[in-house]
Design a protein around this nucleic acid. Structure first.
Lengths: 349, 349
DNA sequence: ATGAAAGCGCTAACAC
DNA sequence: GTGTTAGCGCTTTCAT
């Protein structure tokens, strides 16, 4: 009869393998890390011993000795945001290929977390940092840059940073969206913005302004400040519906899909048909943009690619393949023309 | 003039602090880990030295010596699935309170990854594992349970597991959804399932069957196999529209929201009004369920809570507060009654 | 090709 | 309350 609650045997260590295989610990280490430098018979003996006692090298010890962790810290503003979920997927796929693991730093409206993660990085717990949060990590009186650690930023650019960054060309993408509307005959085009301080929104607003030069005079009332939420879309619909129809925009460009969808839903409730009375373009290309009614014309951001490109840049730095230097990599957006943006009816021009 | 490319100074270590503060390394360690056991003057001298040279304890060394990592491995089937993104948020919030960090194991259709993460766990890189993937992690000839490591599973239950698990009561939730429809006068109620092998779906199908006993005879044609996708919803709408109207269900319960939304969109295109001709209930309570037209009645799963409860159970095991034992914790769902499910019109009964 | 031995930086006995 | 010291388990010179 087995004695109950027998304490589990301590995990096997390299010395146990060495003893069983009749070699030194150095040889075991080599057989595992650089198999080609060990004779074939020895290697097989070692591997057999490893299997027999179920040995797994202790990572903390390896990290300590080798001064690397094969881990990357990914800093996200909000892990529950599906946008970042897709970016994370791209990051994970790229990191997995190079055998790096993923530690998540989820900021989520808790600024006090920053110090904790700065600490993690300074403590040598990770080999590199991927910033998706739009600012340099700092806290507890120290900045991330205090450590000699490779950094790459993505999604939201950090102005003046001296490391590689990856983004979509928000300005050009917004311009393309407006040009699409102009091509459909629209001239009075509204812009439903994100929070005005947001760096993504600033670039998109610039693109709007640039492209609108070709459309003729722009009424400031056509720019409505939103905050990326569905509710902001609803409010914007009410605001536009209240404008005299002679000056009411015939099209709207929203800084993200969620607002665009809120706008459409509310506009229809207010008697404004989409796209008949007003065309709508969103930004992001979320899944739902293809499920809603009407399907949403939108600027697609390749979220997964964004993450993968950033991760590859970081891998280049961590492995020493590339030298660190400031640079901004741009990934291409795509205009997905669907049902919510249509040619301007002749009588509505 | 500064010489360019000067190699960065090596990070300060505990001995540097000790020297500067004029104390032993043990005292520095204590001043940092157990401040109350050190005299106030010493403590202040140490902390001043720490600040002065910008010291951060090396985590690999600490982990090695203390035999813990303050890290948790969270295994998700697909990190880009917004459902898990919310669960992860709950997990992160709970872990952060207890000062645990988060390593993500994203399986994502790459079975070969499993071995890598089993290894991570066996290598002592984490203090506990949270399984959201519905099966025991295994690979490279070893299972997760080979290590004496606390484990908790959530979302998808692993039958027969001997550790705590957290789920929503899918069967009861499905039953409640059907009862809601019966209460609205419906008797011919269809079920749009997930993949039939899926454990979540099996429980929901059982709930459907149980509740339908009160509704009278059930036609097998009312159960349609789906796969949780929008497209499956579209297919189901076509299937139901093809039924003779005398036997056509007046309501449909979908195993998730995405299918429900696809169903509604397609049904309307086929001339079936929702909820006038057919009521629809979804499952999950995704954000979009409140944005679509009509707004979707659905069974809300508290995703964040699900994650937080699981994380708290794991923290209990990791800190030794609780003893490991098999048990299934259930978190409550909520029926969110909205516009897509309405009282059966008298002439349609 | 292999072994001996010196640490990696820290914590925790143990001694005072 | 503080110091001394022995490892934690591994990798990596340096010998042989």
């Amino acid at each position: 009869m087995r004695s109950p609650r027998r304490p589990p045997p301590p995990p096997a260590k390299i010395a146990d393998v060495a003893r069983l295989a009749g070699v030194s610990v150095a040889t075991v280490s080599r057989a595992l890390a650089t198999p080609d430098v060990v004779s074939e018979t020895t290697r097989e003996r070692v591997l057999a011993a490893v299997r027999e006692i179920g040995y797994t090298p202790n990572i903390a010890a390896r990290n300590l000795r080798a001064r690397k962790s094969m881990m990357v810290l990914v800093v996200v503003p909000d892990i529950s945001n599906p946008f970042f979920a897709d970016v994370l997927r791209g990051i994970d796929e790229a990191l997995a290929v190079a055998n790096y693991g993923l530690i998540i730093a989820n900021l989520g409206q808790r600024p006090e977390q920053e110090a904790r993660y700065v600490n993690l990085a300074l403590a040598g717990q990770v080999d590199g940092v991927l910033l998706l949060c739009g600012h340099m990590l700092a806290g507890g009186g120290r900045k991330l840059t205090d450590a000699p650690l490779p950094i790459v930023a993505a999604c939201e650019i950090i102005p003046g940073a001296d490391f590689p960054q990856v983004e979509v060309d928000n300005r050009a993408a917004a311009r393309a969206a407006i040009e699409h509307l102009i091509g459909l005959g629209h001239r009075r085009i509204a812009y439903l913005s994100g929070p005005r301080a947001n760096i993504l929104d600033r670039a998109r607003a610039e693109g709007y302004a640039e492209a609108m030069v070709a459309a003729g005079p722009v009424d400031p009332a056509w720019t409505i400040e939103g905050d990326f939420t569905f509710q902001a879309g609803i409010k914007a619909a009410k605001a536009l519906a209240a404008l005299p129809s002679a000056n009411r925009p015939t099209a709207l460009f929203a800084a993200n899909d969620e607002m665009a969808i809120g706008f459409i839903k509310a506009a229809r409730g207010l008697g404004l048909a989409v796209p008949e009375d007003i065309s709508v373009i969103g930004f992001d290309g979320i899944d739902y943009a293809d499920f809603c009614e009407p399907t949403l014309t939108t600027v697609y951001q390749p979220r997964r690619t964004l993450g993968a490109v950033a991760a590859d840049l970081l891998i280049g730095l961590m492995t020493g393949r590339d030298k660190p230097h400031a640079r901004i990599e741009r990934v291409e957006t795509e205009l997905w023309a669907r049902a919510s943006a249509a040619r301007l009816a002749v009588d509505a021009g």
